[in-house]
Design a binder for these strands. Structure first.
Lengths: 142, 142
DNA sequence: TATACTATTGCGAAAACTTGCAATAAGGAT
DNA sequence: ATCCTTATTGCAAGTTTTCGCAATAGTATA
């Protein structure tokens, strides 16, 4: 669990607190090594922290997402999954089988700069999810 | 309402049916000229079709999205809004005030080609939502 | 170390969304 | 025009997600 103590100063610096609930959820996300649904986060976190509430899981995931520590990826059908924001990377998800590959941020860089220039918006380098068909599914769907 | 009859042959060609519910919802989306939440779609559609059910609204929006007639844009916090997929365009949404600007697909073209080449995925040219801060909010947030 | 401030949690209720199933009705075939 | 097939709907129950509020517990300060 101490492996998530790196977040403590980051929280404090922004006026937020580190709590057992947040530690546990961060810990679960770190060791899952991939996307987790809110229900999965709840299940896994409960093992470490039995008193944990679903409401807190939802609130914590939203909090961590807002603060940029966690990425929310929107799968089809309104389903949302979460994962640790270790790096500046994005995802390409197969809309048929759900398999995903990571995309580096670099290729998006020039697009971002171009859009910032033309719109005046300052873009977050947050997570972007693109959808498509993976090579296997392109074949199997003839 | 006849302004959505263009969809009839497209539905039939894929083995789906045109129903009053789908017509009404498409009609509402067309004349809204922007994002609508499921609740808003329900409210507005109900005026034309009093018997309409919320369940049907959700199912229809998901159906239309899957079929590519409607775009689902994911706002912050798991909120999803829908709009007619008139064109191949994307959105840049201000994470502070929610204001959005449209982005042409063109600037994404080279990125798409590059990713298709490197990943083997065939990308959908579906809707992408990027987040950032609009010029006004950049100032107001000092 | 004790105190005060307030961010965060748990609880319970509400709202939003989904699902199974029987009844309905779109649209191709006769 | 009528019949048949089955996609689609409404209903009602189930599940998931949100919200208000009082109680709890981090953490800065003395």
């Amino acid at each position: 669990m101490s492996c998530v103590s790196e977040y403590v100063p980051q929280f404090r610096a922004r006026g937020f607190r580190m709590t057992p609930q947040r530690m546990t959820i961060l810990h679960v996300l770190r060791h899952a090594g991939g996307h987790l649904s809110p229900a999965q986060v709840y299940e896994l976190s409960r093992k470490d922290l039995p008193g944990l509430t679903e409401a807190t899981v939802y609130r914590t995931l939203e909090f961590l997402t807002e603060q940029g520590f966690v990425l929310a990826a929107h799968m089809g059908g309104g389903k949302i999954v979460y994962e640790l924001a270790n790096a500046n990377h994005h995802h390409l998800i197969c809309r048929n089988c759900g398999r995903s590959v990571a995309i580096e941020h670099a290729p998006l860089g020039s697009l971002y700069r171009q859009l910032e220039a033309s719109t005046g918006y300052k873009l977050d380098s947050t997570h972007v999810t693109l959808f498509g068909l993976c090579p296997d599914c392109q074949n199997s769907l003839n």
